[in-house]
Design a protein around this nucleic acid. Structure first.
Length: 313
DNA sequence: TACCCGTGGCA
DNA sequence: TTGCCAAGGGT
């Protein structure tokens, strides 16, 4: 465990330069150890959650805080304990049960994934990364997360938390780039423990560290198990350089209008007349564009006579 | 690649 | 109050 504190400015020998990054185990051991005592007791981490529970949680947690997911997750798993249970429902029921989690297309994709699992995988969440990746709503992150968390496999699980931990601890910057880079993926693979079980724990532990300690704002380095080797902290925590993340406006956008329209339809039992939807937004062009978008996304089903409802097919 | 896609808590 | 942020995916 040689930890080169400084680059050798005048090496006397021709020995190869040590790797510039800290040895991997110097990060793994303290982070995994910290995780064992500080991990939150979340329902999708319990054994009874199973692969389906893990997968549902990953869909819900995309861009959504844990505290908001918890109650919806519990209701979802109680109602649809297996993929086939969800698959036999109309997609609109998934959208309705999604409630106010946001990004309701995720509900549609989760329903589509349940249908695909039922048809193509005998009702069991597939183990293979490539098969997971082929399901709707599952990208690189979620495929790796399900394979790692549900099946204990060795995958680089690179979410926003892990990217921030790596940016600080290894790269010495406050924040990662706006979009995930090839260099980040390469680093994540290089830091992945060889052993499958250790790799799986490392994935969960590094993510939890980013979520609880190495947070975007008000990080608590005093609680960090690798503060002593954090490149950003050792450099005096320099402020972020480069382009700020694009501000995400919401008020007045199509997203807000879509949200208002869908909220009406979620609460309605019977098909809703156009005139009722018209009351949620006074600007007719934007209102029509938002409704058209919901229809083309499959989130809303238009019926004859100017009626709308959540989709039955 | 850059942009679109919801919602609500918090400083 | 306003801006920032939250376990991304699809196009």
């Amino acid at each position: 465990m040689t930890a080169p504190t400084k680059p050798q400015s005048s090496p006397a020998t021709a020995t190869p330069t040590p790797a510039p990054t800290p040895t991997a185990t110097a990060l793994h051991t303290p982070v995994i150890s910290w995780f064992e005592t500080h991990a939150r007791d979340l329902p999708w981490r319990r054994p009874e959650a199973g692969p389906w529970g893990v997968m549902v949680s990953e869909f819900m947690l995309q861009q959504t805080p844990v505290n908001r997911v918890l109650p919806v997750y519990e209701q979802w798993l109680a109602r649809w304990p297996r993929p086939a249970d969800l698959a036999k429902e109309p997609p609109g029921e998934a959208v309705r049960a999604w409630g106010r989690l946001g990004y309701p297309r995720r509900a549609l994709r989760l329903h589509g994934a349940a249908v695909a699992i039922t048809e193509r995988h005998g009702g069991d969440v597939p183990r293979e990364h490539a098969q997971l990746l082929a399901l709707p709503g599952i990208g690189e992150y979620t495929a790796a997360a399900v394979a790692s968390f549900a099946y204990g496999q060795r995958h680089a699980v690179l979410d926003t938390n892990v990217r921030r931990v790596f940016a600080r601890a290894v790269s010495g910057t406050q924040y990662p780039p706006n979009a995930t880079t090839a260099a980040e993926r390469k680093l994540a693979r290089a830091l992945l423990p060889e052993d499958e079980g250790t790799a799986s724990r490392w994935a969960a532990a590094s993510m939890e560290l980013g979520a609880l300690v190495c947070t975007a704002k008000n990080e608590t380095c005093g609680h960090c198990p690798i503060a002593g080797q954090c490149a950003w902290r050792l450099a005096g925590k320099p402020a972020h350089e480069g382009p700020a993340r694009r501000a995400q406006t919401y008020a007045g956008t199509d997203r807000q209008v879509r949200g208002k329209l869908l909220a009406v339809l979620r609460e309605a039992i019977a098909p809703v007349p156009q005139a009722v939807l018209d009351r949620v937004w006074d600007e007719p062009v934007q209102r029509a564009r938002a409704l058209d978008g919901l229809v083309s996304d499959g989130l809303v089903e238009p019926l004859p006579g100017g009626l709308y409802r959540l989709p039955l097919t």
